[in-house]
Design a protein around this nucleic acid. Structure first.
Length: 470
RNA sequence: GGCCCGUUCGUCUAUCGGUUAGGACAUCUGGUUUUCAACCAGGCAAGAGGGGUUCGACUCCCCUACGGGCUGCCA
């Protein structure tokens, strides 16, 4: 008889005070990969207990960001605020167990204490509530907060899967408030209660919470609950090594969609940012799930490298199925606020994908390379390509138009004609290709001229050549 | 200020006491080429600094420097 290993449950718990930050996106991704790769569950909880700053718009933006990254969660998102009664119930249970107490010190008194300590030049000041051991008979009839009765001596150890064993001296921690005097729970209590109630087995989150873990662990202990497995991952920094902020440019997950990075590439890049498994660089999501582990997470903050992001995205763009490219391209256009493709454009682009998707890294890149399939006559050559349309090359195009009237419209049929035309004019094929590009695409960087001619078809090709030859 | 965490090529990283310190991106050189992309061959490039421990340290310990986090009746 083997004991069934408990199912892994992870969660992502953002506070809805803004868009989904790229760092948050990666945290969610790590949680998702870890759970999904092991047949576990990935839950979503919205930490909306700060009523001042939480907005439904932010929640919607976060959900959109996760959806774009392809991270799906089990069940409905949990609202932390909705659990407030349960949080209060636990706070009172701690009271009953003697692991928490009523504190009647007012915020003003506490502020005064801190000010005094600072004035005395104390290096640090842990507020010690006079009510910690006060007899109930001495309690005034006044509002009170519930504070945890934290140990004042000894140390608390966090066994972290990323950071190792972290030891915190208990005398540096105060008796944190778990229930405010207005009856609402604090974050420190709420996370623990929710994680416990949701059955979370692995807490994978940013290492800005590492210190908090010690106090949260005290709540688990106070309630006699199993402590989850901790994994505190380093934050993402900007290219300059500083904490990623607005001045670095894109910090929101949705910004990356609007810039045209394919989600699969983004996922791959983000997975490799701060995590490694040997030399694995380019992998599918299924492969990432199979490989991902906590042991591979690095301990130092990682910097964003747009060049590598682009390179990774290029690989994924090439690997994507055509239908996938078309669907994601449409989503990109919407996200970037650009007009959708017409049916005709979309139809022709689909035919052209085989010769453009493996040379594009992003969707704007794809659109640029596929310009020949999207543009309508008359083709407007851009500055660079216009240079190759001089009078000599126009003449060549004109004669080509005639020679291409009766030809088998295949690569085999076209090749000899174009080669002969180049030879007849005493120029290399490259010199002939340039004006053809200008005529067919109005661009100097395009797929092969044969591919363009085949995609466009004989009628359209001849029309464009004739336009340019005029 | 105090406490906690971190530091290998420009960047992401491998290494888990013994390696010519490996790979990828970027970059440079050459090749291929029908432009772009791609591709092929090759080059440049790293253990923050200082002390220990050890026969032997990138790896273990200490100090310093730098970066980050926490230090709320915010999350």
């Amino acid at each position: 008889m083997h004991e069934q290993p408990p199912q892994i449950v992870t969660r992502f718990a953002p506070s809805p005070t803004g868009y989904l930050h790229i760092g948050g996106g990666r945290t969610a991704l790590f949680n998702w990969l870890f759970a999904r790769g092991r047949g576990g569950k990935f839950l979503l909880r919205i930490e909306d207990t700060d009523r001042e700053r939480s907005t439904p718009e932010a929640t919607a933006a976060i959900l959109r960001g996760l959806a774009w990254l392809g991270l799906d969660w089990d069940g409905e998102p949990v609202s932390q605020f909705a659990q407030k009664d349960r949080h209060a119930e636990v706070a009172h249970e701690m009271l009953a167990r003697g692991t928490a107490y009523k504190c009647f010190s007012s915020p003003e008194e506490i502020a005064a204490f801190r000010a005094r300590a600072e004035a005395d030049g104390a290096s640090y000041a842990v507020f010690q509530s006079p009510w910690r051991d006060a007899a109930p008979e001495t309690h005034p009839d006044a509002p009170f907060a519930i504070r945890m009765k934290a140990p004042r001596t000894g140390q608390t150890q966090i066994v972290d899967q990323v950071q190792g064993i972290v030891t915190i001296q208990n005398d540096t921690l105060d008796d944190m408030i778990v229930l405010r005097s207005d009856g609402t729970p604090t974050y420190m209590l709420a996370v623990v209660v929710d994680d416990h109630d949701m059955g979370v087995t692995h807490v994978i989150r940013g290492d800005d919470h590492l210190n908090n873990a010690a106090r949260q662990q005290m709540v688990y202990t106070a309630m006699g609950w199993d402590v989850p497995i901790w994994a505190h991952i380093p934050l993402i920094h900007g290219p300059d090594g500083k904490k990623l902020s607005k001045r670095h440019g894109a910090t929101g997950v949705e910004d990356y969609q609007a810039m045209g990075y394919p989600a699969a590439g983004m996922r791959n890049y983000l997975t490799r940012l701060g995590w490694a498994k040997g030399d694995a660089e380019i992998f599918t999501t299924a492969e990432a799930m199979a490989m991902f582990d906590l042991a591979g997470i690095g301990r130092a903050p990682a910097r964003l490298d747009f060049k590598k992001l682009e390179n990774t995205c290029g690989h994924h763009m090439a690997m994507m199925a055509d239908a996938e490219v078309m669907a994601e391209l449409a989503a990109y256009l919407r996200a970037a606020g650009k007009p959708a493709l017409t049916a005709a454009q979309s139809n022709l682009l689909q035919k052209a994908l085989y010769c453009v998707k493996d040379r594009a890294k992003t969707f704007p890149d794809l659109l640029e390379k596929a310009e020949f399939a999207l543009a309508a006559r008359p083709i407007q050559p851009d500055e660079a390509s216009a240079k190759s349309l001089d009078s000599v090359s126009r003449g060549i195009l004109k004669s080509l138009t005639l020679q291409l009237q009766n030809v088998n419209w295949t690569k085999e049929g076209l090749e000899p004609i174009l080669n002969d035309a180049a030879a007849a004019n005493g120029i290399g094929f490259g010199k002939l290709a340039a004006p053809l590009r200008a005529a067919l695409a109005g661009r100097s960087a395009t797929p092969s001229v044969f591919d363009m001619m085949l995609v466009l078809g004989q009628g359209e090709t001849l029309a464009r050549l004739a336009d340019a030859a005029e």
